[in-house]
Design a binder for these strands. Structure first.
Length: 456
RNA sequence: GUGGUUGUAGCUCAGUUGGUUAGAGCGCCUGAUUGUGGUUCAGGAGGUCGUCGGUUCGAGACCGAUCUUCCACCCCA
């Protein structure tokens, strides 16, 4: 084990089988993105630090990978700052670039930077890795892929409706049935905060509420109390903890709670619009569920909030998330540009599909036949046939060395290649090929046309 | 970032209260079978016990540090 090379924690190598499975997911997501009218863009893996810093809250800043400046960067640091050893102050002096933390902020930057070339509303998709300096856990990596679709330049709620449809389309195509698309609305959350007199503590309030199904009602109340939310306010939340029934009846109960809040009523209206449309249009395999405790940490959401939970019984964090952000480009100087988008967590979807055994067998694009190498004369003859097969879009190859037949057969077996072709002196003399089907062991002699037909 | 956990052959794991030369299964290599894999049989290779340091006559085992794994927080895909 000593001296063995390694990779940083939270990162992974992918073997051919894993890449095939990942590509299978990528392709399905991409196909659905394009079916819904989204167009691909790509952005650099690293951005200027100021583009990313401060966009994800204090916690987010800590999780951003910073890239050290080139050259003798320490020499430029002034002595007092250096001796102070304050990382927060020192970092901007020695690091001006940082690895992408998500795809949404770089997209906002892209929109602002290219606003004059973009035709709005602009629907873009992006499937690229992101990096977080987090401590790894199951389904939680320091390098992972996000697959994002966003629309910018339209405030229409039909976009939200379409994103619910898009989630359903992707998970249906992946044959991952029973996912729950949870939806909430930031306006409802701020409405509730308003009603209980905690508007100034919206973030603390939502973070605590978000933990309801994890730590329970009492603990949530305790946390709110400790964050300075009044006991009277918390008592007003009681009906919220007792929300019951389907989407429509929960809405009804919310209306009572939020009757005094304009913002809350607006949120309810929006949810109702989306739910009515989805109920009318229908979903294939997913279900849409109202979850007023759904908050999500990102502070830029202003309207709808989405989160996708894996089917019941699979222990995994959310496999997708998203929402409406009315003014994301505002921080880069472009006002009144509403955006809404969703994200798919490729690596977590992979783990869920693996756990549920949902990858099709045909995912691995293996070669169809291996030609046994009996020597240079026979190999040349085989290569001529291989060329013709390849021209017919049949994936084949020649075993490169003149090894024992047994060893070559074993190689085919190990690689799970379905057919082996044997061409020796006898076959060459008769212009035929011996085709062996590995699974059955059956062998037959065919001419080149027969071989093409058999392997097509 | 906080607390805990894990590491022995390519893989999965044994290894007694510290005591000779660290084991098993699977895999791998060779042969039985010089044109036939998956089965069988015979033989073989492979480990500075994650790393560095300490305690001890003696450490895979005990202690410390560090890296890694997984878990709970925090947060999130």
């Amino acid at each position: 084990m000593a001296q063995k090379p390694s990779i940083p924690k939270g990162t992974r190598d992918f073997n051919p089988d894993q890449v095939a499975k990942r590509n299978y997911i990528f392709n399905i997501i991409q196909t659905q993105f394009e079916r819904f009218g989204f167009q691909p863009i790509e952005t650099p893996s690293f951005e200027n630090s100021e583009t990313l810093m401060g966009k994800y809250g204090e916690e987010g800043d800590r999780l951003i990978f910073k890239i050290l400046n080139s050259g003798d960067f320490l020499k430029k640091v002034e002595e007092p700052l250096y001796t102070e050893k304050d990382a927060v102050k020192l970092t901007p002096k020695i690091s001006e670039k940082a690895l992408r933390y998500d795809l949404t902020v770089p997209f906002a930057r892209y929109v602002v930077q290219h606003q004059n070339e973009i035709e709005f509303p602009f629907k873009r998709y992006q499937m690229q890795p992101v990096w977080r300096a987090d401590r790894p856990q199951k389904g939680r990596f320091r390098e992972f892929y996000q697959c994002d679709a966003d629309v910018v330049g339209s405030t229409s709620l039909w976009q939200e409706v379409e994103f619910v449809q898009l989630y359903d389309a992707v998970f249906t195509a992946l044959q991952l049935e029973g996912v729950t698309i949870k939806i909430n609305n930031r306006k409802i959350l701020s409405g509730i905060a308003e009603v209980i007199g905690a508007s100034d503590k919206l973030i603390d309030f939502t973070v605590a509420l978000d933990k309801l199904d994890k730590i329970g009602e009492e603990k949530v109340k305790e946390e709110m109390l400790s964050k300075g939310i009044s006991e009277a306010g918390i008592n007003k939340l009681q009906p919220l903890f007792e929300l019951q029934g389907d989407f429509a009846s929960q809405i009804k109960q919310l209306q009572d709670i939020l009757s005094a809040s304009e913002s809350g009523k607006k949120g309810i209206e929006e949810l109702q619009f989306i739910n009515t449309a989805i109920t009318e249009i229908g979903l294939q395999t997913a279900s849409l569920q109202l979850d007023v405790t759904l908050a999500r940490g990102l502070n830029y959401y202003t309207g709808a909030i989405f989160e996708v939970a894996a089917p019941k019984g699979v222990k995994m964090g959310s496999i997708g998330g998203g929402g409406r952000y009315d003014d994301l480009t505002g921080i880069f100087g472009l006002k009144n540009m509403s955006g809404v988008g969703i994200s798919f967590g490729l690596d977590r979807i992979y783990l869920v599909l693996e756990e549920l055994n949902l990858f099709p067998d045909a995912v691995n694009k293996n070669i169809k036949a291996l030609f046994i190498n009996f020597g240079d004369k026979e190999a040349l003859y085989a290569m001529t046939a291989i060329k013709q097969l390849r021209e017919q879009n049949i994936n084949t190859e020649l075993y490169p060395d003149t090894a024992k037949t047994g060893k070559q057969m074993k190689h085919a077996d190990k690689r799970q290649i379905p057919y082996v072709v044997l061409v020796g002196e006898q076959e060459m003399a008769n212009s035929v090929f011996t085709l062996k089907h590995m699974a059955s062991g059956e062998q037959k002699q065919l001419d080149i046309q027969g071989l093409i037909a058999a392997l097509s």
